[in-house]
Design a protein around this nucleic acid. Structure first.
Lengths: 335, 335
DNA sequence: TTGAAAGCGCTACCAC
DNA sequence: GTGGTAGCGCTTTCAA
């Protein structure tokens, strides 16, 4: 057990050179001409024979760069974030970076803890889907590039990449109208104090008057789609209000919950009531009927965010201009 | 920008003590009586005033412990692994550990790369849902505790926690029988060269004769449920074979694909044909009809695996006895 | 009870 | 072209 790891010293000894030479030769693979070909050869041989892996810890200590990025995400169990994470990882990996992933479960204090810890661990930059503003300023003050994804924080104006929520809301509204909906009910999950959902609603309000929005039901972000379902159920069972022509879910959990509520009421979609949402999810295409949604350009968002961060690792200042990507309508048959 | 971080030296200077004293006092919080109360006070004051965060990198370098665990997972975008990850993270976090998460996308070579890199980064232990045996021996040889989850590797006998696949297959078979099924078709996703699926089938074979298994359709693990759907479609459309009473999916993607195929054929579940699977997934309860499955005790698996690893960080040798947890039947209405 | 020194493994710099 | 030295920030001896 506990085999002592091979160090540059060991390689140097075997190749008959000084450790610093080992380091130079191994790191600048394309400067071979500057060293005696024989030396280079011996070093490479020794390194492979010994299975030398430079200690990333020591390297990070010395260079101040860990080649690691921190990803602070709301809930990795939510496929939305899982996919986002997956795209981000693939992208930064290709550029030589690794990811440290932390789950905040929408807890702002935990987020602050994670950020502080990631900084202490020497990450080179931070990607965050904020659960609040907590800890973000400190990260920026520490001189670390930070890019927010999916949600924008209210105060700190950090570089941001995400869905154009107003456009998404408007697109959803247009489609609702196009399918003849007059009155809608909205189910949403409120996450932190961000502008995401209010913007989606703002877009919707560009198309629907206040009077046409029968109700807006909210829920805490830690709840599941079961809870969302309860809320919608209560709304639809309340006979003192007119029934909306359609229910819209502003997040994937909300839409799923709304679907479940409508079905459990024995209502038929779209004949009795329509359903649509923002955020696509695997099950949407498989429900009966398949549910139409505004889909986020997840991969583009992931790539744009990663690129923005990677770029600001080298250049000094990233544009504080939010990069807002448009959603696309995925027509299925729920309206 | 690039604010120089606070070091123990800075704290020491402000408190008028040597950095080593700062370290001792701050680390052994419950040995206060061994130091002059006044010194302790000044150090704490200085540390909080300066916002001192010890560098985890330097600490890892010195102590050889990074308080970080590596999690090498097949596909974080698959909610099964997303949830597993989430449980694991919560559990190890409570014990002071962080997670470095790597996605192999079922690529054994990538797995080997990740493992080597994780070792170089000084992780204290490894949790792996193997996509193959690649790199696992090397990790163990390096003296790192390794625990495999979900799938067992064929050769390396590593400590393992996962579903009791034979039991799960048998349970599924029993339920199929109980609902009157005589002949079944099986859809599965083959992942690596592990025993997981063959064990699920073995359990099924305890209940069904070979003749009662009309067909077994396989697919590569990188495929989506769409591909699974194609396969099942082809099987069910093949009129030269008898149609099974039920289709069973051996993974969540398979079951989803099978559902889609059956529906697109206009067949009704369970009247025309039954459907069931191993692995629960969010959509299973929402499909029409809801799909019955053998569910994995995900949280228990996560906790047991994390505990096993954590324990072998301190004690020397973990039991090489696989810890097999039973699946439970979730009755819905697809049989 | 505290200070001083050493050293984890690496790489940047300065000699030669 | 290559060796030597220093030092990243921490913790762990050993001395006092």
């Amino acid at each position: 057990m506990a085999i002592p790891p091979i160090t540059a010293r060991d390689v140097g000894r075997m190749a008959g050179v000084h450790p610093s030479t080992v380091s130079r030769v191994l790191n600048r693979a394309f400067d071979h001409h500057r060293y005696a070909p024989d030396t280079v050869q011996r070093i490479h041989d020794a390194a492979t024979k010994l299975g030398y892996q430079p200690s990333a810890v020591a390297r990070a200590m010395r260079t101040g760069k860990s080649m690691t990025l921190g990803l602070v995400v709301s809930d990795i169990a939510n496929p939305f974030f899982g996919e986002l994470t997956s795209h981000i990882e693939r992208h930064v990996l290709a550029r030589g970076y690794r990811l440290m992933i932390c789950n905040t479960w929408e807890n702002p204090d935990l987020q602050a803890d994670f950020l502080a810890d990631l900084i202490a661990r020497g990450v080179d930059g931070l990607l965050v889907t904020p659960a609040g503003a907590e800890g973000l300023d400190k990260a920026r003050d520490a001189g670390l590039p930070v890019v927010t994804i999916d949600r924008q924080t209210s105060h700190a104006k950090l570089p941001h990449v995400g869905l154009d929520n107003i456009q998404a809301g408007r697109l959803l509204g247009q489609q609702l109208r196009h399918h003849g909906c007059q009155r809608i009910g909205i189910m949403m999950v409120i996450a932190g104090h961000d502008a995401m959902l209010s913007n989606r609603i703002k877009g919707l309000r560009d198309i629907f008057d206040d009077d046409d929005i029968v109700w807006i039901e909210t829920m805490h972000p830690t709840g599941s789609h079961h809870e969302a379902s309860q809320r919608v159920l209560a709304r639809l069972s309340d006979m003192s209000q007119p029934r909306p022509d359609a229910v819209v879910g502003l997040t994937n959990h909300s839409t799923l919950g709304a679907y479940q509520a409508i079905r459990s009421l024995g209502l038929s979609i779209p004949d009795d009531i329509g359903l649509a949402g923002v955020d696509d999810f695997a099950a949407a295409a498989l429900l009966s009927p398949p549910v139409s949604v505004v889909a986020q350009p997840l991969e583009q968002i992931a790539i744009a965010a990663a690129d923005l961060l990677l770029q600001s690792l080298h250049d000094s200042d990233p544009s504080p201009q939010p990069e807002l990507l448009p959603g696309t309508w995925v027509e299925r048959s729920s309206l």
